[in-house]
Design a binder for these strands. Structure first.
Length: 460
RNA sequence: GGCCCCAUCGUCUAGCGGUUAGGACACCGCCCUUUCACGGCGGUGACGGGGGUUCGAGUCCCCCUGGGGUCGCCA
């Protein structure tokens, strides 16, 4: 049985790196028919916010990741942690430290001034005198004084940390609340977590957690430390980089399957394959195949993936998604033609909605470059003849409109472009876009006539 | 700065001692085409540097350089 977990702290929105970590854990659990736990790390009462938790859940919901059981909140498990802390205290594996924050800060300053690494000096480790009054003590765990802490990382291999790199870290604050490295170990053990896949910024936490596991006699899980995602300049991701919030991608018109596909390929690969459905990921993913080097993201690949998934999405699934971008097409009897023509061209849903709007609505303005190119030669007579033919006809399908254009082309012995370009600008105000016949079939005969006549009136 | 981790095209990556170093995105051509896209075809482009080991190193070892992480009563 494989049990994985995603354990964010509720300090803000779910960002892209967090989602990748969640995805890796989710995939590994699902692949093995195991369990995936969502646990909110909110032991620091001063910092957590319910809103942040909601944001994480919302993002999970959007991309379609689920979790087993209820969301676990560490803030509701304080009594459990308390029992384990008392146990360590009683067994002499942890101790009260009466050093104040001020004293600690001073010590650190002095150490830094002396060019030493700042660390607690273990002054209360074997203290048995009279504790100073008026100081609420913290609880510190006794870390080994010598030797190495060695563990096997599923991605990076054997990691060795010298004991003197790990000091007697705090497991309970002076207000009695437990701290991160302690509760993580306790919860992972209690919840039966077998595989911990997390960012490698946690690498140095692992020896600390191993100390807790050992002190408590708990089973140590397997660790996989995933290299960080860097920004496009190869630097560490920061809020200045813009869209880090997962939900921001939704607002920009990205499909969750594209985002997930993009993320899974950041650090993980399977031969030369680029496109992975969720099912394929589930079948093929293995944390051992994760790259050891950090990776930078480049959004143009996300664009490519997104356009791929848009192209392959059935129209009836696109419809409700497009409504979020103000495009209501459900009742439009030519929606299939419109969507088929547009999904080939759009990188995002937002773009698709805008392009549709640009066809459905008569142009408010005409691109200058387009006008210049098109209002030349016989354009006016050509368009007038087209309107004449159109008025007398009863076109419905794209092919009907196409035939009408062809008739003008034959009659006047001109190239298709001679009528196509002016017509296109008259209809949309632009030089580029979907097939003219499709556009006309979508807006219908009357609207075509209206737009062309208006165009002739304006510039003729 | 100490400690830990890492290093193949601009980017994501394949490679697991013998390859013309492969794929994808982006970019540039050509084709398709009424246009813009899509699509097809082709192209530019990488093993950071130096030492070893070996008949033979992108692949193994060491050093350098560069990058990242971490050093909280945050997680």
């Amino acid at each position: 049985m494989v049990v994985t977990r995603f354990a964010p702290s509720p300090t803000g929105y779910l960002h892209i790196g967090g989602l990748r970590t969640a995805l890796f854990n989710w995939l590994w659990a699902r692949k093995n028919g195991g369990k995936f736990i969502l646990r909110i790390e909110d032991t620091d009462l001063a910092r957590n916010s319910e809103e942040a938790t909601r944001a994480i859940l919302e993002a999970f919901d959007w991309v379609g990741l689920d979790y087993d059981g209820d969301v676990a909140y560490q803030s509701k498990r304080f009594d459990i942690y308390k029992r384990y802390i008392d146990k360590l205290l009683k067994e002499g594996k942890a101790y009260y430290c009466y050093m104040t924050k001020e004293e600690l800060d001073k010590l650190r300053e002095e150490q830094i001034a002396r060019g030493e690494r700042p660390r607690y000096d273990r002054r209360y480790r074997d203290f048995d005198g009279e504790p100073p009054s008026g100081v609420e003590p913290v609880v510190r765990i006794k870390a080994p004084l010598e030797g190495n802490i060695v563990f096997e990382d599923g991605i990076k291999g054997t990691i060795t940390i010298h004991a003197d790199e790990v000091d007697d870290f705090i497991i309970a604050r002076s207000d009695g609340t437990p701290t991160y490295n302690f509760v993580v170990a306790v919860d992972d053990a209690l919840m039966g977590v077998t595989d911990v896949i997390r960012g490698d910024d946690h690498l140095y936490n692992t020896p600390k957690q191993i100390i807790v596991y050992r002190a408590l006699g708990l089973r140590i899980p397997r660790f996989y430390h995933v290299p960080m995602i860097l920004n496009e300049e190869g630097k560490k991701l920061s809020k200045r980089d813009g869209a880090l919030d997962v939900m921001e991608y939704k607002r920009m018109g990205y499909l969750p399957e594209a985002l997930l596909n993009f993320l899974v390929r950041l650090g993980w690969s399977h031969k030369d394959q680029e496109i992975f459905s969720l099912e394929e990921m589930k079948r093929l993913f293995d944390p051992h195949d994760i790259n050891k080097a950090p990776s930078s993201y480049n959004l143009s690949k996300l664009d490519w993936l997104n356009s791929h998934y848009i192209k392959n999405k059935p129209n009836d699934e696109l419809l409700p998604l497009l409504e979020e971008f103000g495009l209501y097409l459900s009742d439009h009897d030519r929606k299939e033609i419109l969507l088929d023509a547009l999904k080939e061209r759009a990188k995002t849903l937002k773009e698709l909605a805008e392009m549709a709007q640009g066809i459905l609505e008569a142009p408010k303005e005409y691109e200058e470059r387009a006008l210049k190119k098109v209002t030349k030669g016989e354009w006016k007579e050509i368009l007038e003849r087209f309107v004449e033919l159109l008025t007398a006809a009863q076109p419905h399908l794209p092919v009907d409109f196409h035939n009408l254009i062809e008739e003008v082309v034959r009659e006047r012995e001109i190239g298709f472009g001679k009528i196509g370009q002016p017509l296109r600008v008259a209809l949309t105000g632009k030089l580029g876009g979907p097939d003219l016949a499709d556009i006309m079939a979508v807006i219908g005969k009357d609207e075509v006539i209206r737009r062309v006549n208006h165009f002739i009136q304006l510039f003729g």
